[in-house]
Design a protein around this nucleic acid. Structure first.
Lengths: 201, 201
DNA sequence: GGTCCAATGTGGACACTGCCAACATCGATT
DNA sequence: AATCGATGTTGGCAGTGTCCACATTGGACC
């Protein structure tokens, strides 16, 4: 029975893990730096050796979230036949992520991002949007969306799925199951984005 | 020079006003019950005679916000000739409100609503959505949108404007002025909702 | 192999918060 | 005029984020 070493070894990673679990359990409101430290069996000040402050730890959590979101969108889209189907699936994956990890999603988007504070997080966020943008551009190359600058189209698509995710999490929708929500989301994407297919941009 | 009376008179209203101003200044994160009391020249415990706790005060702030939002949408729509134009204007008013009062908007939507906790707030929120719904239904009566249940259409429109508002507030858009944002929003509404015009629902 | 040092841990302190309890004041009802 | 409930006040408690001084250590350097 040896006593635990004074130095942890990979505390930073453990803190991040613990923080993500805690956010999931208690939400951003109940989230506490000291509780993270407690669960990591470490003094209340240890986290400060790895994160400048509470916000920086949350930014790291958000960064991880953006990476997972990007991965989820890519996975959902891959092996889909048509460009259009890839776009649809990635949009649905976005919504699915939002409602499956509501607290994480909140941390990622409900802090006005100052890229100066955490460029890594900003980069991860831009990459998530970038994958959506790439699917839009792919649709254009396949003539499934009108040609031109893909950016505005991507912003519209993003706004739509983001709005659905946020409103669903805020309990603003009349749906009683995730299945219902996803069915609605499909129709929403088809209706809104589909309406812009093959028309002059 | 008379000393201030022991009993304030209309402290509840003053607290609400003060809270709204404070939210505007410091945002939901820095918002503090004690600071509200301080600014109202009242002891740190006085607010508890009028609001059960901090969340209830915030709920009251949110309620007021929903009323303002509803009014803004109605005002923007009125005296517009076509049903379609009314829908457009009310949607733009929603976005405009979101970016003009970002903190207030956050308080309104970024707390998972439990209608049990504050039915008045829930009602005010539903009414805001109800006005959007009514404009959709009006479009349908004027044959500017396909007939059928207006609810899904309204939810799509809501998601879109909500998403735009949220992403704009989170600094996620590449626009450099509110004008640019509103121009984009117009195109977004026309493209997404316009695409669903006059097609089988 | 011994010495230093920067990285990483600890405990203590401070100001601040939300909320609770006990007490003070006062206007309306009797 | 007495009273009583509504509405104020002061004081206290536990918990928080962050700063400071101090402890421990593994590895670089001679």
């Amino acid at each position: 029975m040896r006593k635990p070493p004074y130095h942890h070894g990979n505390l930073r990673a453990v803190l991040l893990q613990t923080a993500m679990r805690l956010i999931r359990e208690v939400g951003p409101a109940g989230f506490t730096l000291r509780e993270v430290a407690r669960r990591a069996n470490v003094s209340h000040n240890a986290p400060y050796r790895h994160f400048r402050n509470k916000d920086q730890l949350l930014a790291a959590v958000a960064t991880e979230g953006f990476r997972e979101l990007t991965a989820a969108m890519r996975t959902a889209a891959e092996s889909q036949p048509s460009a259009w189907e890839r776009l649809r699936r990635s949009g649905l994956a976005y919504i699915s992520f939002a409602v499956r990890r509501p607290e994480h999603f909140t941390v990622m988007f409900d802090t006005p991002l100052n890229p100066r504070d955490d460029p890594v997080c900003a980069k991860a966020g831009e990459e998530a949007f970038g994958t959506l943008l790439s699917f839009i551009a792919y649709c254009q190359r396949q003539r499934e969306l009108p040609p031109g600058d893909p950016l505005p189209l991507a912003l519209v698509a993003w706004s739509l799925v983001h709005g659905i995710g946020k409103l669903a999490n805020a309990n603003r929708f009349p749906f009683h199951s995730k299945t219902e929500l996803m069915k609605f989301s499909e129709k929403a994407l088809d209706g809104a984005l589909g309406g812009m297919r093959r028309k002059p941009g």
